[in-house]
């Protein structure tokens, strides 16, 4: 008996299941964006707290480290009995993992701010709030953006583990493709995952460049512009 063809990629599959694939992709994007946004909203105050009150820094970092070591599969399993199977559980798990990456990177960024710069701002009479928003946070931005990119890319990959509780975006398609032994479905959703991660990463990279004109790599052509940018930065800061 001849086995039916089971190609790794098929346009026909995409054409016939377009709406299903798009639905899964939309769920995947929604989960990712929502999780990262919530994680940012929680991690910023947490990281600032850890920085402001050194005594809290150890516990916050230690706790996030322990949580991060717990496998996602287990975390979803720990949450499922309480938050049910579905969207909420996946979202909570994703937020927790993104949170840890973000808190670490923001703290590292804040710690890396040149003490002389902080000292100068203090000498100029900056209040702690103004110091935070106009000196410390902008200076920590490179590390924050790096953390954001890392968190986003990991979240895109992690969403697929949501199949454990029946809500995994593109992971759902992968899993169904596996159950019905249909390679095109698996390969398509895997490729879409990779593409999504790549696109979001590049988008955030671009956002970072826009937000930090002083931090652009100095090319031959751009060097003058960036020097200009650096100068205006200095002027606006003074």
């Amino acid at each position: 008996m001849d086995a039916p063809p089971n190609p790794w990629f098929s346009w026909q599959y995409l054409e016939r299941n377009w709406s299903e694939v798009v639905d899964a992709l939309v769920i995947h994007i929604e989960l990712t964006v929502l999780a990262v946004v919530i994680a940012v909203a929680i991690s910023l105050p947490l990281a600032i707290l850890a920085r402001r009150i050194p005594r809290l820094s150890g516990p916050i970092m230690g706790f996030t480290g322990v949580l991060y070591t717990i496998p996602s599969f287990a975390l979803f399993a720990l949450l499922a009995p309480y938050t049910g199977i579905g969207r909420t559980t996946v979202l909570i798990g994703l937020v927790i993992y993104a949170l840890l990456i973000l808190v670490r990177n923001i703290v590292v960024g804040l710690e890396g701010v040149d003490p002389d710069v902080v000292d100068a701002a203090k000498g100029l009479g900056y209040s702690p709030t103004k110091l935070l928003f106009s000196v410390e946070l902008p200076n920590a931005l490179p590390s924050m953006i790096a953390g954001l990119r890392l968190a986003t890319v990991s979240t895109v990959a992690l969403v697929t583990v949501g199949v454990v509780v029946g809500y995994g975006g593109l992971g759902q398609l992968m899993f169904r493709g596996l159950q019905s032994d249909y390679r095109a479905q698996i390969a398509t959703s895997a490729l879409l995952c990779l593409a999504l991660a790549l696109i979001l990463d590049v988008l955030l990279l671009a956002v970072g460049r826009l937000a930090m004109p002083w931090n652009r790599p100095q090319g031959k052509r751009g060097s003058r512009a960036s020097r200009q940018a650096a100068r205006t930065q200095v002027e606006s800061a003074s």
């Binding site: 895109v156 990959a157 583990v161 199949v163 596996l178 390679r183 390969a187 895997a190 790549l198």
Partner: peptide
């Protein structure tokens, strides 16, 4: 990092 573990698992299992 961007490659979901599940993607690789299912790809291998189906191969």
């Amino acid at each position: 990092r961007a490659m979901p573990t599940l993607a690789l698992l299912t790809l291998f299992a189906a191969s």
